[in-house]
C-alpha cells in the first residue's frame, strides 16, 4: 500500500525528535570545555535543540 505524502512530514518530524534524544545523550563535558562550564550559551546541545524545534515547526507548517 502506498503511504500518502503527508507521511513524509510525519517521518521527518520523527527523525528530528530522535535526533533530539541523541543530542541530549551526549554528556555536557563532551560539548562544553571546562573553562566555559558556567556559560549556558556555550552548551551546543541547546543550539541543536532550538534548530530541531524550528525544523519540526517548518515540517508541521508546510504539509
Amino acid at each position: 500500500m502506498e503511504l500518502p505524502v503527508i507521511w513524509a512530514n510525519y517521518i521527518s518530524i520523527g527523525l528530528f525528535l530522535a535526533l533530539g534524544v541523541g543530542v541530549w545523550s551526549i554528556p555536557k563535558s563532551a560539548v562544553v570545555p571546562e573553562e566555559y562550564a558556567g556559560e549556558t550559551w556555550r552548551d551546543l546541545r541547546w543550539w541543536a535543540t532550538g534548530l530541531i524545534l524550528f525544523q519540526i515547526a517548518l515540517y508541521t507548517f508546510f504539509r
Binding site: 527523525l15 551546543l44 534548530l51 525544523q55
Partner: peptide, 25 residues
Amino acid sequence: GIAQANFEWIGAIPAMIIAALIFIP
C-alpha cells in the same frame, strides 16, 4: 515550490548537528 527547501532543511540540518557534536571534535 517549497519542496526545493528540503535541500536546506532535512537535507542539511540533521547532518550539520551530527557533524558539529560528533565528527568535528
